[in-house]
Amino acid sequence: MKKRVRQVLVLFLVGIISPFLLSFVYRETKPVIERTKKEQLNKSLQEVFPDSLIRFETVKNDTLWRIYKNDSCVGIIYRSSKKGYTSVIRPIVSVDSRGKIIRLKIQKEGLSETPGLGMNVTEDWFQEQFRGLSEDELWLKKDREEGKLDAITSATISSRAVVSAVREGLKNFKKYIPSSSSTHNEWFRNALESLLGNSRMEVIIQGKLWKGGDRYIYLSQGEGFASMIGVLVSIRNDTIQEVHIQFPEEGFCETPGYGSRVIDEEFDKRFKGKAIQDIDGIDAISGATITSNAVKNAIKTGYKEFIQGRNR
């Protein structure tokens, strides 16, 4: 009997101590693991766009980022993948605002092509060839006449996989490339000026909310199809007077010819004279629903902040 009790006790102890120790180790290492992952990602982003004055904004988790410099979008970085010879090849590629490749880097993690042959896709000379190429030129010379890339000797399959991964990624993501480089700030200054005219405004929240007589102006942002969209709203007696949507040539980082229909069809005019609760009833621009909704949401969230700011 005594032996039984002892056995149960020992088992019980082992069963308690082991998970306890492990949960401790897990809790200690988890933040470190996550931090290293983030650092690695940041490092690889910086490697393909080495400039210290920029910041990255995630558009699609783990696949697409926008590069911002002085608040204007100067390019994108994407990650794509393609089956190589014996593993999956995952390049990270940076593209400038003209849609030309700046730099690419092939992730070594999980890459196991034939050593000495396919593995050479990670070599500098091979990756360097891509610089400055546009989508049509992203072919192997031996595959297409317009191609500008040399394959690695005896590793055509791996080379071709890299080239198609880059090309297909560019094809998929080029719609996210900003078409202009002028800044958000400029747009904002002009829009504010056209709203204000000569009237004097007092600042309620710096850079966000202004008041002139019974008129309020607020700035807000909404998440569009591929980026943040800025709106500047002028409001009087809870009725919208005028809405300014950030234009493409003013740093409007939205899909050209797609989201920008919001601008072409003068979506901003539809808000005139509406009360905030009527906004949901306004028709979206067909073919640009996400952008339209982003504008609506930006107006609504900005309105909430405005109410809070006004009552302060």
């Binding site: 089956k83 010879y85 014996t86 593993s87 999956v88 196991s112 399959i157």
Partner: peptide, 8 residues
């Protein structure tokens, strides 16, 4: 067999 049907 490696590379057979692009397998990996």
């Amino acid at each position: 067999f490696s590379g057979f049907m692009g397998l990996s």
